[in-house]
């Protein structure tokens, strides 16, 4: 009897399914444990990939809970490409809809942060905007200019103290998370992505720039959140971290 790859695949990911027809190691010999090698290989490979990809999530849930969650996720969302470096992009949405964990509201945001850290790690190398680029432009032109971020830069908006939660789980003797909303900016100065906390005004400024707004409009959006908003520290951080690639003045 022909055993197609469709039937094989169904039995691989669902241990409740029977072993496919047509597999043998000789007349009448049982092959359940032999087929189980493939079942185990697939599950272990996917679970190991998720463990490596979501270290903070695993710490927050505990090994035992994570090891139960990961195969459930893997069965619902097997990889859609052989690029395992990006596996787990559906984890935030999966967690947001996963009833047993809905009392932990920040889990989906943590998963989004971890997906973005990996995306940053593998993003293209670009030439950073030089620090003197801003000084070479007239103030009026600067206000009308837009900025292009490096592909390594990510913004994860959150209503939770997302940066503090990340740090508390990744660094020894990090302080306990504060009760405040923090978005996270990810930069990659060379090869290692670095998360930075952003307050609501900084988040509004970066969101506006990401949206293609001019610097003046971004400034307005930030000041609307915090009247005393000062762009200098944020701009210094972005330039020092190589998070910007182009300053686009109107004459360009």
């Amino acid at each position: 009897m022909h055993s197609g790859q469709s039937e094989f695949r169904t039995a691989l990911l669902d241990p409740a399914q029977p072993v496919p027809n047509g597999l043998t190691i000789g007349q009448g010999k049982p092959i359940t444990k032999r087929f189980a090698v493939y079942r185990n290989n697939v599950t272990v490979a996917l679970v190991d990939a998720l463990k490596a990809s979501f270290p903070v999530l695993r710490k927050l849930l505990g090994d035992k809970n994570f090891d139960q969650l990961a195969p459930t996720f893997a069965r619902a969302h097997p990889p859609s490409t052989p690029l395992m470096m990006h596996y787990g992009a559906e984890m935030p949405a999966f967690l947001a809809a996963f009833q047993p964990l809905q009392h932990i509201g920040y889990l989906a945001d943590v998963a989004r942060l971890e997906v973005a850290m990996r995306a940053s790690y593998h993003a293209a190398d670009t030439t950073p905007l030089p620090a003197d680029a801003f000084g070479a432009v007239q103030p009026e032109a600067l206000l009308a200019a837009t900025l292009t971020f490096a592909p390594t830069m990510h913004l994860i908006r959150s209503d939770w103290p997302l940066y503090d939660i990340w740090r508390f789980n990744m660094e020894e003797s990090a302080p306990k998370p504060r009760a405040e909303a923090q978005s996270v900016l990810i930069t990659r100065p060379e090869f290692d992505p670095i998360p930075h906390p952003l307050d609501p005004a900084e988040t509004a400024w970066i969101s506006a720039i990401l949206n293609g707004d001019a610097i003046e409009a971004a400034q307005d959006a930030a000041v609307a959140r915090a009247p005393d908003f000062d762009l200098s520290p944020l701009l210094t951080l972005l330039v020092q971290q190589g998070a910007l690639t182009h300053l686009n003045t109107p004459k360009d």
């Binding site: 022909h2 790859q5 469709s6 094989f8 697939v42 490979a45 490409t81």
Partner: peptide
């Protein structure tokens, strides 16, 4: 071997007849 079925990558080297 095979490892992709439809839109799914199964991350193992699976056997062929």
């Amino acid at each position: 071997a095979w490892s992709t079925h439809g839109a799914e990558f199964l991350d193992d080297l699976l056997p062929l007849p």
